[in-house]
Amino acid sequence: MNRGAAALHRLSIGVIGLLCLVLAAGVILHQLSVHPVEGWVDRIDTGGIRDATAAGWFAAVLVAVALLALYWGWRLIRTTIAPRRPELLVLNGSGPEGTMTVSLKQVASAVEEQLATQTVLRQVRVQAIDDRGEAIIRITVDVAPERSYDEIVGIVTPTIEDLRIALGDSDVHVQVFIHLDALQ
């Protein structure tokens, strides 16, 4: 998961929630005629608000805030769209003569074919996904319960190391999920 996008979501929701909570508490305290809050509301200068909204700069500030809110909202929506399939990966080792690109879907298929030859693994599924802007190769293996975790890690580790060498310094992450079936 892309931690930056997740932090952006949590920060946004936290700020909006905090503002709503403060506003709701203020309204409730004003309705209950609690002393300091009631006095604050009575001291609001409605004439000053009217003058500010009539000023020429108010429309520009309002448009700027609206554009900022639209941009922020679009970023939040764009990062929550369902994981996509990454198209091509441009390798960092590409030279000035041209770029070297690799289809991550084909890489995932090759890894799946390689791991499927292991008879110890019941089922192998390898996907190339784009999760919130980060390319991920996700390996999922199902294993019989009588197999040990160390044995499965020993089988999967060479494949992970091969991927790390092949992808070099690219931003592709490799995830491995090992599902040990329940004992019967």
Score class of each variant (00 low, 15 high):
R3Y: 14
G17Y: 10
L18R: 00
L19W: 01
C20Q: 01
A25L: 13
A25C: 06
V34N: 10
H35W: 07
W40M: 15
D42F: 15
D42T: 14
R43I: 07
I44Y: 00
D45Y: 02
T46N: 10
R50A: 10
T53R: 12
T53Q: 08
A54C: 12
V61L: 14
V63T: 08
V65K: 09
L67I: 11
L67G: 12
A69Y: 09
L70T: 12
W74Y: 15
L76K: 15
L76M: 13
R78L: 07
T79W: 10
R84Q: 08
R85P: 01
L89N: 06
N92P: 06
S94M: 04
G95C: 03
P96A: 08
G98H: 08
T99G: 02
T99S: 14
T101N: 12
S109W: 02
A110I: 01
V111D: 05
E112M: 07
E113F: 14
T117Y: 04
V120W: 14
L121Y: 01
R122L: 14
R122G: 11
R122F: 02
R122E: 13
V126L: 08
Q127H: 12
Q127L: 09
D130V: 06
G133S: 11
E134A: 14
A135H: 12
I136F: 04
I136S: 03
V143L: 13
Y149S: 15
V153A: 15
T159Q: 00
E161F: 03
L167M: 09
S170R: 01
V172S: 13
H173M: 05
Q175V: 10
Q175T: 04
F177E: 03
A182S: 13
L183P: 02
